[in-house]
Amino acid sequence: MTEPEVLDGLTRILRDLLQDESITLTAATERPDVPGWDSFAYVNFIVAVESEFGVRFQLSDVEAFQNVGEIARQILALKR
């Protein structure tokens, strides 16, 4: 799996979660950039990402992610 593929997957999940097909995530996207991606939606997003990608983040991961790129890279690291 490549980083662009992971980004596509993350985009799909956030579109489904927020019911907004206009969302496109890039490595640089941060939460405030996406309308509606509040802390509650972030928890749901993490839960969905873990289940869709079959990974399990650590508490320090979910508290430290600064942008979508860091999430994608952590997924790739966990999948390796």
Binding site: F40, V43, V47, S51, F57, L59, V62, E63
Partner: peptide, 14 residues
């Protein structure tokens, strides 16, 4: 425990 610490959920979203 992670969801509890992250969001004070006693019942996991799962």
């Amino acid at each position: 425990p992670l969801r509890w610490l992250q969001a004070k959920m006693e019942i996991s979203p799962n």
